[in-house]
Amino acid sequence: MPRQMYDKGKIVAGLVIFVIIATFPFWYNIGKAAPAPELKLTDKAKAEKECVMSVTDMKAGHMQLLDEWRDEVVRSANRLYVNSKGKSFNMSLSNTCLDCHSNKADFCDKCHDYASVRPYCWDCHIDNPKATEEAKE
């Protein structure tokens, strides 16, 4: 069998175009990497010192925690979370998490933007935690 490549030019051109398109996100973003954002805590959050879990756990696993919370609250009607230190929390994104972290733009959004994730929690859960604070007083 003769080893010959038909339509060599077309194939090579096609491959080059494919590689360029497939790697587009990499070279398009070259040099644009933003520095890791620094989180700002509200005074209330600072005063609390520790969140529901340790900071490292929260950083890595807050989404799983929230997922667990929402299933527990909505589907099993369990609304109380007692952490390993015996402190209990009302499992509520709107009323517990955002009560301390009422600076959504500086706390939530910064990191989410950096990680390029767009959770749609705020489509339903209060998007303006400042208003929440005021309403309570």
């Binding site: 756990d57 007692v82 390993s84």
Partner: peptide, 17 residues
């Protein structure tokens, strides 16, 4: 480590529920 830390987490209803 994690397991040790979370061993005594409790999820339950409010007493007043």
């Amino acid at each position: 480590e994690e397991e040790a830390q979370h061993a005594d987490v409790e999820i339950r209803k409010n007493e007043k529920a």
